[in-house]
Amino acid sequence: MIDVLPHYKTALWLTLKLAFIGIVFAILVGLICSIIQYFKIKALSNIVQVYLEIARNTPLLIQLFFLYYGLPKVGITLSGEVCGIIGLTFLGGSYMAEVFRSGMEAVAKSQVETGKAIGLSNLQLMRYVIIPQAFSYSVPGFSANCIFLLKETSVFSGIAILELTNTTKNLMGIFYKTNEALFMLVVGYLIILLPLTIFLTWLERRVRHAEFGN
């Protein structure tokens, strides 16, 4: 276990990097989609709805297979890491969009109407009225999605990315030490997920004090 520790260290950092980039992009995609849905922007709303249905109703592994094995058939070749980030963004954006949309709709309509009455534009409404309050409502779902997406990096092994799960499979095939390898895999995910869970739980309690009207 000590001898293979450097392999797990490298895999852990790769898992963290891909998850972080994917989650950041997923947040951006989700926020844009939720704003389009909230204001019911014509044409774009239909496109967003189609995207959400496709993303939420297809497994991440199938999406990765399409990106990694399918696109080269039409002359588009992407690295495994790029495919992983795109796949995580595509799937995560759809879940984040639903979380942010529900948070926006939880904001009192009276406050939105008041903002319009004093002449705020839609952009100003989002910045000063809706998003600050919607954030506090969205934190529980947002936290769950972050943890979910981080765990979904385990399917990256299907496209030959040497993250934690794939590294474990390779080491099991080389040394035939199944129990030790799986134990290291569990420890690796605990190192990532436990601090994140504690931080997100603290954040959820913290932002509850910022809710308006309570």
Rank of each mutant, 00 (worst) to 15 (best):
T10P: 00
T168G: 04
I54S: 12
F156L: 15
L203H: 03
Q37A: 14
P72W: 13
A134K: 11
Y95Q: 09
R205G: 12
E163F: 03
V139W: 05
S121F: 00
P195F: 02
Q111H: 12
R101W: 12
E98N: 12
G93T: 11
F100Q: 09
S154K: 04
G30V: 14
M96N: 09
S110E: 13
I130K: 02
V29G: 09
R56V: 12
K151L: 13
A106D: 10
E180F: 03
G213V: 11
F135Y: 11
L44K: 01
L52D: 01
G103D: 08
R205D: 06
A108S: 14
Y8A: 04
S79C: 14
F148A: 15
M184I: 02
G103E: 07
A210E: 14
I47M: 13
L123E: 06
P6E: 10
M184F: 09
L185A: 00
S94E: 07
I130L: 08
T10S: 13
C83H: 05
H7D: 15
K9L: 12
G103W: 06
F156V: 02
Q37C: 15
C33E: 10
A181E: 10
G75T: 00
S110D: 14
L14Y: 01
N57G: 14
I174A: 06
L185N: 00
Y189H: 03
P6W: 08
E180C: 04
F156D: 02
K42Y: 09
L12S: 13
I130D: 01
V24T: 11
G80N: 02
L71A: 04
Y51C: 14
A26W: 07
I32L: 15
T153D: 03
N179A: 08
A106I: 01
L88K: 07
V50H: 01
S154E: 03
S45F: 05
R206E: 08
G92M: 13
A106H: 08
L88Y: 05
Q49W: 12
T10M: 08
S138I: 12
A144C: 03
L5K: 09
A26E: 10
I62V: 15
Q37G: 06
I21W: 13
T178V: 12
G22S: 14
G188C: 07
E105N: 07
Q111R: 06
C83E: 05
I174E: 09
F183D: 11
E180V: 09
L150S: 07
E163N: 11
S121W: 00
S94G: 09
L60I: 15
L150A: 03
L125F: 00
R206V: 00
L67S: 00
L16W: 05
I41F: 10
V139P: 02
I85M: 04
F212M: 13
N214R: 15
T89M: 11
